[in-house]
């Protein structure tokens, strides 16, 4: 579907669809804080405060026996009875949800019973597996809508579409990143940005992975061995070409540098997790074409292409 305006009716339909698609277990909170029937209302007060809860299930030796809320606590405190046990105040007539029920059942139950929360149990074992509040439902739906929206955005920017719309004999999109030598705090940042951009452009994840693993290795080489340089990505229909240029010191023996395990890196580089002689071999493995020129004292020019 291609649409630039927000279509309200469609959006509403999507949220309705979602409450049928999503299951209670996807929205519920799994870290359930519980109390025991013999705990005092004062214990309950502290537990609710500590965990910032508005209510909690009551468990007796592994069995769910009731549910107690902040309203029950207020009523108890108003009557000045903080030392009475939770079992005096809890609701033993509670309603549960099954973890595999669609969210729409939960929404209906919230409307019907007016409770603030439902304990969630496993349909087979009948064990308590979570708790569901209205807040949980809203959070889960919003997250899901955000994911949907993001996927739609990506589809809208699919480069094959707008590449086709731009008339030329050869259309190329260029992304250029400046790499600082010896700056380890930022080593990897360029490839990280490149990865996000390639994803936004809708390039297949497998190809994005190969391109950015290779560019990351190349970026690390620039940071480790050179005073810095430039990493550029040229995106065209069907392929991405990366060029990496620096101004020295250059590679004396390219053939050996391409051998897995061959490294000239000092120990401090290994302590940073690199310099094991796998950089160039990794780049080669990830790319469909590779060209490496280097002159000692002048610099290195690496170019590789990944078909997308």
């Amino acid at each position: 579907m291609k649409s630039n305006g927000v279509n309200r009716t469609l959006q509403a339909a999507r949220t309705q669809e979602l409450i049928y698609e999503l299951k209670v277990q996807q929205a519920m909170t799994t870290k359930v804080i519980t109390v025991e029937p013999e705990n005092t209302m004062e214990d309950l007060r502290q537990i609710l405060k500590l965990h910032q809860l508005s209510g909690t299930p009551v468990m007796n030796e592994g069995d769910l026996v009731g549910i107690v809320s902040v309203e029950d606590l207020i009523r108890s405190l108003l009557e000045g009875n903080g030392s009475e046990p939770v079992k005096q105040r809890m609701s033993a007539n509670f309603v549960t949800l099954y973890a595999d029920e669609p969210l729409v059942h939960a929404v209906q139950k919230f409307e019907r019973h007016g409770f603030g929360r439902f304990p969630v149990i496993d349909r087979k074992t009948k064990e308590l597996v979570g708790i569901l509040t209205k807040g949980d439902i809203i959070r889960c739906m919003l997250q899901r809508l955000e994911i949907d929206f993001h996927e739609q955005e990506i589809r809208r920017y699919k480069p094959s579409d707008w590449f086709a719309e731009l008339e030329s004999d050869r259309t190329t999109l260029g992304l250029r990143y400046l790499i600082q030598g010896r700056n380890f705090q930022r080593a990897g940042e360029a490839s990280s940005k490149l990865k996000q951009n390639l994803r936004t452009l809708g390039i297949a994840p497998e190809a994005v992975r190969r391109i950015t693993i290779a560019s990351y290795e190349a970026e690390m080489n620039l940071v480790i061995f050179t005073g810095g340089g430039e990493l550029s990505a040229f995106v065209e229909p069907g392929k991405v070409t990366i060029t990496v240029v620096d101004h020295g010191p250059g590679i004396p023996d390219i053939e050996r540098a391409m051998q897995p395990g061959y490294s000239t890196a000092p120990d401090w580089v290994r302590e940073l997790g690199f310099g094991a002689g796998m950089g160039l071999p990794n780049i080669k493995n990830c790319s469909n074409e590779l060209k490496l020129d280097s002159k000692v004292g002048e610099g290195t020019n690496l170019q590789f292409t990944v078909f997308t």
């Binding site: 990897g188 990280s192 992975r209 997790g273």
Partner: peptide, 22 residues
């Protein structure tokens, strides 16, 4: 993709590596 990485390396590159390898 989606794997767990066990490592003793705590520098930013542990995260960049995780990102590149999904």
């Amino acid at each position: 993709p989606g794997a767990l990485l066990l490592t003793g390396l705590t520098t930013p590159q542990s995260i960049y590596t995780a990102e590149m390898a999904d």
